[in-house]
Amino acid sequence: MTPRRSAHDVLTIALRKPGDVITLRRCTQSMCRAAGLTGSPLVRLTTVVSEAGEHLLGAPGLSAHLCLEETDTVMVTVRIHWRGDHRPPSPLLSAAGRLLDDSRLTGPHDDGRHELVLAQRTAAPAASLGDLAADVRANLADGGTAADLIEVLRTQNGQLLAALEESQRQQEELQRLNAELEETNAGVMALYSELAGELQATNTGVVALYAELEDKSRRLELANGHGRPVRRLPAHPRPRRRPSRQRPRLPSSRHPQQRLARPHDVTINSNTRSNAGVDATPFPDELLQTQAAFNATYAALAASHRRDTIALRRRLLRLSVRLWWHPYWNTAHSVPAARTQLRQLARTGEAARAA
């Protein structure tokens, strides 16, 4: 059962020209504000009403009837009437159904008129609905529309100024971000150049290291062979008889602790003999500290949970270059042995500090 409606007329506007649609919009806004309808519901109702008036403009007998209706709730209602074959577009009717609390299209009736009802729910006023409708009529008749227009223009100007200020702030923020981005790009390019130089120096040091190691290996082989290169034994040597002198006995399977010599055993034994008897070398404190820092940086870089790997890699490269090209190695008697002893001393110092 449909509840009985109690309607209180406010104003009827004939829509014959575009200016009448603007007047309809202003009067709808004034009625909504007087009924306590503000914010988004007011905007939705006035927007749908003005759109419907523009689409139906030119229809015979087009008019808009503004009223306040009361059933179980209070509704701010605009009823648009016309005759003929004009019909609001389907997108407008769908939007009205989504945006408004009540939207209905009826007709044609017995008199040939169509009716489009657009309504929005509002809170019940403190005074009676009839008195509120009378106040709204008096306000519209006394020029409240002009005052409402001034208020709307003032509100729009305030919103425009706020939008301009927000745009200015966003532009300044964008300029600041662009400046920071340019500075960051310059820093990245400088870092790339520095890393490229350090990588070139490291590559040069590695090449020199390989050359020195190769030269030391050749000298050790010559020293171990008494002026002749060491003859490398095959993987599975076959015994043969020498009539001139007695050959050393080969290890048999009955002695598993004995094993055949491998090519790398010769190098290890020669290094052991060349390093044997070397006294503890007094290294400079600065060199020991550099080696300890290198060990600590390498350990930190090996940790899987670290994220600052870029800084650690750069530090590791710098420390490796300092260690390799330190002036002390120009005066060392046995550079490979001294380097090994330096690493051992650095590890011993770290273990003593940890204990």
Score class of each variant (00 low, 15 high):
Val78His: 03
Arg313His: 08
Ala64Phe: 02
Leu287Phe: 03
Arg353Asp: 10
Val136Gly: 07
Val206Arg: 04
Leu222Ser: 07
Arg154Asn: 10
His86Phe: 07
Ala123Val: 05
Ala127Gln: 12
Lys216Ile: 01
Gly205Val: 11
Ala302Met: 11
Gly84Thr: 04
Arg98Ile: 06
Ala354Val: 02
Phe283Leu: 14
Ala96Gly: 10
Leu323Asp: 01
Arg307Tyr: 03
Asn185Tyr: 03
Ala201Leu: 14
Ile80Asn: 00
Thr46Ala: 14
Arg306Lys: 15
Leu56Ala: 08
Arg254Gln: 10
Ser270Glu: 05
Val266Pro: 06
Ser334Val: 03
Thr155Met: 02
Gly97Ile: 02
Asp285Ile: 07
Asn203Cys: 06
Asn203Arg: 13
Thr38Glu: 05
Leu233Phe: 00
Leu174Met: 09
Leu56Lys: 06
Asp265Ile: 02
Arg315Ile: 05
Arg231Val: 07
Arg249Leu: 11
Ser274Trp: 06
Leu177His: 05
Arg137Pro: 03
Glu165Lys: 08
Pro3Ser: 14
Tyr328Phe: 15
Ala35Val: 03
Val136Leu: 10
Arg238Val: 15
Met31Val: 06
His333Cys: 13
Arg26Ala: 09
Arg242Ile: 14
Ala141Phe: 04
Gln344Asp: 08
Pro251Cys: 09
Arg240His: 13
Pro125Tyr: 02
Asp85Glu: 14
His305Ser: 15
Ser103Trp: 00
Pro282Arg: 14
Pro234Arg: 06
Thr297Phe: 02
His226Cys: 15
Ala346Lys: 05
Ala162Arg: 09
Asn157Gly: 14
His333Thr: 12
Glu212Met: 09
Ile268Lys: 10
Asp102Met: 04
Lys17Trp: 04
Asn224Trp: 04
Arg314Phe: 04
Arg87Cys: 13
Cys32Ile: 02
Arg121Cys: 12
Leu129His: 02
Gly97Arg: 06
Ala354Asp: 13
Ala311Tyr: 00
Thr145Ala: 09
Leu149Thr: 01
Ala147His: 02
Leu116Ala: 04
Leu209Lys: 12
Arg353Gly: 08
Gln170Ile: 10
Leu42Arg: 13
Pro108Leu: 10
Arg259Lys: 13
Leu195Phe: 01
Val49Gln: 00
Leu199Glu: 10
Asp131Gly: 05
Cys32Leu: 12
Arg238Gln: 14
His114Arg: 14
Glu115Phe: 00
Gly61Gln: 09
Arg273Gln: 12
Ala52Gly: 01
Asp85Thr: 09
Glu286Val: 14
Arg169Ile: 05
Leu11Trp: 00
Ser167Arg: 08
Leu342Gly: 03
Thr348Tyr: 02
Ala299Ser: 11
Gly58Val: 02
Arg232Glu: 13
Gly349Leu: 11
Pro327Glu: 15
Pro125Ala: 09
Gln291Met: 15
Arg218Gly: 07
Val117His: 03
Glu180Gly: 08
Leu342Phe: 03
Ala190Asn: 02
Leu11Ser: 04
Gly130Ala: 12
His326Pro: 13
Arg254Ile: 11
Asn271Gln: 10
Thr145Tyr: 00
Ser30Pro: 00
Gln246Gly: 12
His8Cys: 15
Asp20Gln: 04
Ala201His: 03
Leu15Pro: 06
Ala311Met: 06
Thr47Leu: 08
Ala355Met: 09
